[in-house]
Amino acid sequence: MLKLNRIHHIAIICADYSASKKFYTEILGLKIVREIYREERNSYKLDLEVGNLYQIELFSFPNPPQRPSGPEAAGLRHLAFEVDDIDEAIAHLSAHEVVCEPVRVDPTTGNRFTFFADPDGLPMELYER
């Protein structure tokens, strides 16, 4: 059987690199590990750290095609971030004009969660532990 250790990274292609870089670093507070401009691809690659565990790779490409982004569309459903206090996290996002859906309760765990979107409309979740 294949032995997978953990998720190594998540790659996201953005339409507006400056807006997405600001969103992920200034609003979500992810730490920049490295930023590379790949001239041959006219593309940036921004490596981001999430809680010392996972890495998000943010890519820019000229004119990337659109894809369905709703949580019920085929493909990756959403990217979830664990938080200690969902109300505090929502207040922080709201202060930066990021709209969150009403908080729901996971019927299996009893934990609270909400959804919001990144600048490209990619679905994101806050999940309170």
Rank of each mutant, 00 (worst) to 15 (best):
L4H: 07
N5I: 07
R6Y: 11
I10N: 09
I12R: 04
D16K: 14
D16A: 14
D16C: 12
Y17H: 13
K21L: 11
K22M: 03
F23V: 06
I27C: 07
I27N: 03
L28V: 07
G29H: 03
K31E: 14
I32L: 05
I32G: 01
V33S: 02
V33A: 07
V33I: 15
R34V: 03
E35N: 08
I36P: 00
E39I: 04
E40Y: 10
E40D: 11
R41H: 08
S43P: 00
K45W: 02
L46S: 03
D47F: 15
D47N: 08
L48G: 01
E49N: 14
E49F: 01
V50I: 15
N52S: 14
N52W: 04
L53E: 12
Y54T: 13
I56Q: 04
F59D: 01
F59I: 01
F59S: 02
F61P: 00
N63M: 05
P64F: 12
P64V: 10
P64C: 09
Q66S: 15
Q66H: 10
S69L: 12
S69E: 02
G70S: 14
P71N: 10
P71E: 03
P71H: 12
E72S: 13
E72D: 13
E72L: 15
A73Q: 13
A73G: 02
A74Y: 15
L76R: 02
R77P: 00
H78W: 06
H78T: 05
L79S: 07
A80R: 07
F81Y: 13
F81C: 06
V83N: 04
D85H: 08
D87M: 05
E88I: 09
A89T: 11
I90V: 15
I90Y: 03
L93I: 12
L93C: 08
S94F: 06
E97L: 08
E101H: 11
E101N: 12
P102G: 10
R104E: 15
R104K: 15
P107H: 05
T108L: 10
T108C: 04
T109Y: 07
N111T: 02
R112T: 08
F113P: 00
F113I: 04
F115A: 05
F115T: 05
D118Q: 09
D118R: 11
D118V: 06
P119Q: 09
P119D: 09
P123L: 02
Y127T: 02
E128Y: 08
